[in-house]
């Protein structure tokens, strides 16, 4: 075995199939997209090489800039709203709460459900005429609080982000929970002997020890927000008047509705770069702490 592992050729041979697959379905398309992003191309007619013109246009496209801003806002909310909630839930459940198995499952259900179902569900909740939210507000005598949640430019973004944040709380909770559960009992025992209780144990023992998982979650949350597509597509399709546009929906719209393959591809490249940048940034941040 050792001999095989030290043989560079053998390593190359054994990793080749996986690498080839990865290369063809991940790396190659990125480069092809980059090539497309330098073209003015409708997908059928002749391709016209225009250099970086698409990128220049991109940063004057107010819809794209708005979508970029929206996705950054979502990334912020994910890290500072979604993750703390998930962490608190995980810590509480890890602390041997009665019925923790039930809660664990309950919080995780939205993660298992298909995004389209979640979208449909929340569309029913937000429906202006017979939606749950407005009906409840009416019932409480808060008619003045009712809104056309997804149909109004001012409320649509918040209304669309709420289910996105909500859906993945369970996912991060489970990651934290698993990490917390893997911490040795001995440490807790020692802490208890030293007189540490609930919150203190969490703060001084659990959280520092699950830091690697916090990092992973932060990266998932940020990258997931930056490339978010499905829920927005179902809930608002970027509307009304582009209020809820995110880079992926605007890219989809440009490529598949407006047949601007080149221009859309430049957005794809920006999304990839953005994700890479934030991944590196978060890695650095956790290292320096």
């Amino acid at each position: 075995m050792d001999r095989v592992m030290s043989n560079k050729k053998a390593i190359a041979v054994f990793t080749l199939p996986a690498f080839a697959l990865y290369f063809v379905i991940v790396i190659l398309p990125v480069f092809v997209s980059f090539y497309y992003s330098l073209l003015k191309w409708d997908g059928i007619s002749a391709r016209l090489f225009i250099g970086l013109d698409n990128y220049a246009t991109l940063f004057q496209d107010h819809v794209f800039l708005r979508s970029l801003w929206n996705s950054l806002l979502l990334a912020f909310l994910s890290v500072f709203v979604q993750l703390p909630i998930a962490l608190i839930l995980a810590l509480v459940l890890a602390g041997r709460v009665k019925g923790s198995r039930f809660y664990r499952t309950a919080y995780f259900i939205p993660v298992v459900m298909s995004t389209v179902m979640i979208g449909q569900l929340w569309m029913k909740i937000y429906h202006p005429s017979f939606g749950l939210l407005n009906t409840v507000l009416d019932g409480l005598g808060l008619e003045s609080w009712t809104r056309e949640w997804l149909g109004n430019e001012n409320t649509a973004l918040g209304a669309a982000f709420a289910p996105i944040i909500w859906q993945y709380i369970g996912y991060h909770m489970l990651l934290f929970y698993a990490a917390a559960k893997s911490i040795s009992e001995d440490l807790y025992e020692a802490a208890r002997i030293d007189g540490a209780t609930g919150a203190k144990v969490a703060w001084y023992i659990t959280i520092p020890l699950i830091k690697p998982m916090l990092k992973v979650s932060a990266i998932f949350a940020v990258v997931g927000s930056l490339k978010l597509f499905d829920l927005i597509y179902v809930l608002t399709n970027g509307g009304p008047l582009h209020a809820t546009e995110v880079p992926s929906t605007w890219m989809f719209n440009n490529i598949f509705r407006q047949y601007q393959y080149g221009y859309g591809s430049s957005m794809a490249i920006i999304i990839i770069l953005e994700c890479l940048l934030f991944t590196v940034l978060i890695q650095r941040l956790f290292k320096s702490e």
Partner: peptide
């Protein structure tokens, strides 16, 4: 136009 029409799909408008 109906309440909240900017957030309503064609199918929903028909259903109403």
């Amino acid at each position: 136009f109906m309440k909240g029409y900017m957030g309503i799909t064609r199918d929903e408008s028909e259903a109403i």
